[in-house]
């Protein structure tokens, strides 16, 4: 073997080693580039904007440090939006869970035939198929003071007057939360149904031998078995609901006055109505922090499961 051959062999080995080392990174590169362009850069820009007096419309924005955050946190409207968001998100997530479990258990019962079960599964899943625009139009018609819901309530003597579901300060937040609950429960229902089908029947059989009733079964077998799915769903639903914009915007626009103003509508108005992009970015950063905290919990929970 000549010296040259040895060298060629070494260099081939080295380039092979390099290729082997870099190969995984090359596979990752397209995803990394996409994430940087579509995720990291916009997030970085929004965070950067939040530290300037006003951006985009101002050619020479001035760095103001945390002044925007200070201004925002002392803004009464912001806290109204936070309060409404908490009610909207909290109400939606809790109701999604309760309705989801209930419907999933109904659909999982052995007392309904398979054909009927399949039909109900399709019907109960329908709201999940509609877009926010369709849901908003549909419910605006149903909740119109002269609409079907009021007609039913008056006919059944449950109300003496036509209620202004979306136009009353006392009812509007409740109404939009109800609409969101209706629109979002099927995800819980379908996921929990899958979870219920995964619970081993032996657990129920042995509990029956021990004399446990349905309630005890639910609390000591069903719920603990569903816990991992429920926690994941709750965390995801929290993040999705906190970002809900279209539904609120198309039904009430955040009104009457500020009765249904949530963080997303508050940010939109600051950006596209007042052209205060820096303040809108500041609000968005706060929303980002909240979502990130929830996301961390979600990831930890997922890892814990693994």
């Amino acid at each position: 073997m000549t010296y040259q051959n040895v060298n060629r062999g070494r260099s081939k080995k080295r380039s092979g080693y390099l290729k082997k080392k870099t190969e995984p990174y090359l596979y990752l590169l397209p995803t990394v580039i996409l994430m940087v362009v579509l995720l990291v850069v916009p997030i970085y820009m929004v965070i950067q904007y939040s530290f300037f007096d006003n951006v985009i419309i101002n050619d020479n924005p001035v760095f103001v440090g945390f002044q925007n955050f200070q201004e925002l946190l002392t803004n009464e409207s912001f806290w109204v939006a936070v309060k409404n968001t908490l009610i909207f998100v909290g109400g939606s997530v809790i109701a999604h869970m309760i309705i989801g479990i209930t419907f999933a258990m109904v659909l999982n019962t052995k007392y309904i035939g398979p054909k009927l079960k399949a039909m109900f599964r399709v019907i109960f899943s329908l709201p999940w198929m509609f877009t926010a625009a369709v849901i908003a139009v549909l419910w605006k018609m149903l909740l119109n003071p002269n609409g079907f819901i009021n007609f039913l309530l008056v006919e059944l003597n449950l109300s003496s007057t036509n209620l202004e579901w979306l136009a009353s300060r006392d009812l509007a937040l409740f109404s939009v939360t109800m609409i969101n609950i209706w629109a979002g429960y099927p995800l819980f229902m379908i996921s929990i149904l899958a979870g219920l089908q995964g619970i081993q029947s032996q657990l129920y059989e042995s509990s029956a031998i021990d004399g446990a009733n349905h309630i005890k079964n639910f609390f000591y077998i069903t719920l603990p078995q569903l816990k991992p799915i429920l926690i994941s769903l709750i965390l995801l639903d929290f993040v999705w609901t906190i970002q809900q914009f279209a539904l609120i915007w198309m039904t009430t626009g955040g009104g009457p006055i500020d009765a249904t103003e949530i963080l997303s509508t508050f940010i939109y108005k600051q950006g596209f109505s007042e052209y205060q992009y820096a303040m809108a970015s500041t609000s968005a950063v706060i929303l980002l922090i909240i979502c990130t905290i929830v996301a961390i919990f979600y990831v930890r929970h997922q890892r814990g499961q693994e």
């Binding site: 002269n146 202004e164 136009a167 009104g255």
Partner: peptide, 10 residues
Amino acid sequence: PGAYAMKEAD
């Protein structure tokens, strides 16, 4: 009724 949530189209 419903003026506070009413839009021009409504």
